[in-house]
Design a protein around this nucleic acid. Structure first.
Lengths: 187, 187
DNA sequence: ACAGTCGCTGACCGATCGGTCAGTTACCGT
DNA sequence: ACGGTAACTGACCGATCGGTCAGCGACTGT
């Protein structure tokens, strides 16, 4: 992997765990075995690093939203969306965790504005298909919970489960969480 | 409310949204309408502010864990635990969000060590009652998802739902998420 | 042999960081 | 009237922040 991509990955890891404001260019440089000047050679600013780190995830989520926005989430379309959504979370877990949790406090960074409007669109989309308070909570828990569980540090004394198993379990859980009240049996 | 408590609340809000490392004493002082010196008059250091902000939540969760650790989560004990857990999340939403998401990266701060070992205990407790990968994911999603949804900024164009409704919905969702596989119907 | 560029560096900049300290008010009990 | 203390402040400290810049060695095509 190129130094350029290395830096992006290191920065993403730090942004996700220590926060954007809590991560210094010096720290990224140390983790990469470079000087701070070298980091700024590859990326013109700290903001540019953030853009490189979370930009692709935002673009991808925009694509998914464009596909499903406006149409009802029933039948095979619903299953397909949930699979896409879970795969998106698996691929961009650190990115999602980063802009989900810190987006609101970084309001005037351009790439974060895109992320925030994305979350807003996502919320509106589910508000249109899930009218009750509980359904909206369910959506939020699925999103925030999956992002948390996928980016939480892993217990190193035990091997990580295979990704296929995680994916299947996630699809099952998210399907359950996003099932509309009307299709659910009363508790 | 006293200036002392004001500062704690302001700091907690900032730690939860911008992160510990991303929050400056200067910013806290400005939000409180004080000078930075005054903040350091009430709290001897930034770490002391963090301790005051999340310490009580950690103590409370320790209590809950002490009560239920070692005994099986079935029947009325399970219902009682889930209600306690949800009430805990409702009362300490910002605290939980803070140390859940930033605990791992602040390893050598004493109060954060307590928080990390707490999360570790909580994880172990559920590992002992939920052996499958899916059940552990379910627990993580319930914890991280509830913490996320309760601390995410609220859409200001619409009134906040009454806390009773949120509480009831949360209990329903968490109960569902924490139901062991053996009690669940196959999908 | 040489000009150009690529990856990288240390020195340096002003600003801000967490934190210390001496001092200023305002209010207290005596 | 006065000593003590609680609340607060600005000046200041060394360290670190994000960022600029001139220059370094290695490699390239001509």
């Amino acid at each position: 992997m190129s130094t350029h991509d290395d830096l992006r990955d290191i920065a993403l890891n730090e942004f996700a765990s220590a926060g954007y404001g809590g991560t210094s260019l010096q720290r990224i440089a140390e983790l990469a075995g470079l000087s701070k000047s070298s980091v700024l050679y590859h990326y013109s600013s700290k903001e540019a690093l953030l853009e490189a780190a979370i930009g692709p995830a935002i673009d991808r989520m925009m694509e998914i939203l464009d596909l499903i926005e406006g149409q009802p989430l029933t039948g095979p379309a619903r299953v397909a969306f949930i699979e896409q959504f879970v795969d998106f979370l698996l691929q961009y877990r650190l990115e999602v965790h980063t802009f989900i949790n810190q987006g609101p406090s970084l309001e005037d960074v351009p790439v974060v504005d895109r992320a925030n409007s994305l979350v807003f669109r996502l919320g509106n989309f589910f508000k249109s298909t899930a009218a009750t308070v509980e359904d909206q909570l369910r959506f939020g828990i699925a999103l925030g919970g999956a992002a948390y569980v996928l980016s939480a540090p892993h217990d190193e004394t035990v091997p990580e489960p295979p990704v296929d198993e995680t994916r299947a379990a996630l699809i099952s859980i998210v399907s359950e969480l996003l099932a509309p009240v009307s299709l659910r049996s009363a508790s």
